[in-house]
Design a protein around this nucleic acid. Structure first.
Lengths: 131, 131, 131, 131
DNA sequence: GTGGTCTAGACCACT
DNA sequence: GTGGTCTAGACCACC
C-alpha cells in the first residue's frame, strides 16, 4: 500500500487544505503510521495526488517543520522528525482528540440532546467511520 | 434572565464571529430556547453586548433570514420565523449534532484511540461542559 | 362594494408598503375608480383594513397630497384632488404603465427570450391576472 | 469584447447595487453568456469598472455563491457553478421573466389599458430596448 | 426606534 | 494574485 494512501483531503470543506493536511500528518505520526525517519512524499508528488497547488503542500510542510514534526534533509526531501517521540502513548493521542470532542459536547448540551443519545450516536459513528 | 444571555461568541476563535452567531442561533431555535415569533435583540443592542461592530451582527441576521430562520419585520426588527414553528423533535436536533460527531469519530479512528476510551472521554465532557 | 376593496397591499413584497399604496392610488385615480372629490378612507380605517401601522398610511397620504393627487380638507379627511383631470385619457394611463414594461423588455432581451414568446406570455397574463 | 461588458449597474436606481448585480448575473447565466466554469471578474476589477466599493461586489458574489450560482475557488477567484451546467431551456428563462410581466399585467388591468394597446407598447419596447 | 446600504481602509487567509 | 472579515462612520428607508 502506497504511502500516498495515508493522505487525503476534502477539497470542498471550509477548513483550508493546508490545515487539513497538517492535522492529518500529526494524527498519522501520533498513531504510528508515520515513524521517525520515514520519508514524506515529495511536494510535487503529493500535490499531484491530491490535485492541489504545490505551494499548498509546501506551506503545510513548512509549518510542520516549524512545529518540529517534520525535518528537512537537504537534497533529500522531508522526513518525520527524529526528535518526535516515536510511538505516542494513548494519553497523548487522546489529547489530540479532546478539542473536537469538547466542541461536540458543547453543541450537544446546547441542542439539549440527552447524553445517552449523543453517546449512542458517537458509538455508532466510531464503528462505521472509515479512517 | 435576559435574552441576551443566550448569545455569546469567542472573539479569538478562527471561526468568524458572524458564523459563530449563525450556528448558535440555529441551535437555540432547535432547542426551543428561541421560539417562532420571538423578537431577536436589535442589531445595535447585540453588537454592544458582544462588543463587536453592528455590521457583523447585521451580516449574521441577514444570512439567517436568507436561510429562513429569522424574519425581518420592516421597521420593527427581526424575529424567529414562523416557518420554524414546529417544535423540533430530538431527531432533528441530533442531525445538527452529527457533523461534529462524525469528525470526532474520524479523528479518533485515525488516532487509533480505542472506542471505549473515546466514549469515556465524551461522556465526561458531556457532564462537565457548560452550555 | 366598499371603497376599501379598492386598496390592497402585499405585506411580504420588497417594495415598501407606503409606496405600494401610493402607486395603487394613482392607478385608481387614473382609471377613474377614484374621482375628484371622492373621500378617501380615514387613516385609521385603512390602517386597520390593511393591518399596517397608521403612520404608514399617513405617510402615503401626505406624499400623495404633496404630489397633488389628494387634498386635505380640514376636519373632513382626505379626498381626491379637484385639480386632477377627472378621467385620464388612455395615453396618460399608458404612460403610467410604461416603466414596468420597459423593465420587462430589457429583462426579456437579456434573457434572450424570443419576442414572440414574451408577447404570448404577456397576453396570457393580461387575461388571467386579477385587478 | 471584454467580459466586463456583460455587467452594468444603474447607480441612481432605488434597487441596491449588489441586488442589481445579482439579478443581472442570473440572467447572464440563464442566457448562456456566462457558462459553467467561466471565471468571473475579480472583486477588485469589477469594483473599479463599476466605480463602486469592492465590498459591494463581494456581497453580491457571496450571495450568488449561497444561491449556488457561483463557486468560490479558494485563492483563485469566483467562477460560474458547475451545477448550472445544463444549458437553460427557453422555458426556464421565461420563468425568470414571469414576475415582472405579472406585475405589468396587473398594472395594465388596474389602469384599464386595453390589452391590445398594452401588447402593442410591449412589442415596440422589445424591439427598441437595448440589452 | 428598527435594519439596510455603501464607503474607506486595515488586516488576514488561501493558493 | 485571490476573496474574507472586521471596523468606523455616514446616510437612508421603514414603521
Amino acid at each position: 500500500m502506497s504511502l500516498l494512501a495515508l493522505f487525503s483531503i476534502q477539497p470542498g470543506a471550509t477548513e483550508p487544505i493546508y490545515r487539513q493536511l497538517i492535522e492529518l500528518v500529526k494524527r498519522r505520526v501520533a498513531a504510528g503510521q508515520l515513524r521517525a525517519g520515514d520519508e514524506m512524499p515529495s511536494v510535487r508528488e503529493l500535490a499531484q495526488a491530491l490535485a492541489v497547488n504545490p505551494m499548498t503542500i509546501s506551506k503545510a510542510y513548512s509549518l510542520l517543520e516549524a512545529e518540529g514534526v517534520l525535518e528537512r534533509r537537504r537534497g533529500l526531501g522531508m522526513s518525520v522528525a527524529e526528535a518526535h517521540r516515536e510511538a505516542r502513548q494513548v494519553d497523548d493521542r487522546i489529547d489530540l482528540l479532546r478539542p473536537t470532542l469538547e466542541r461536540a459536547a458543547q453543541e450537544a448540551n446546547q441542542l439539549k440532546v440527552p447524553p445517552a443519545q449523543a453517546l449512542a450516536l458517537f458509538k455508532t459513528l466510531l464503528q462505521n467511520t472509515k479512517e
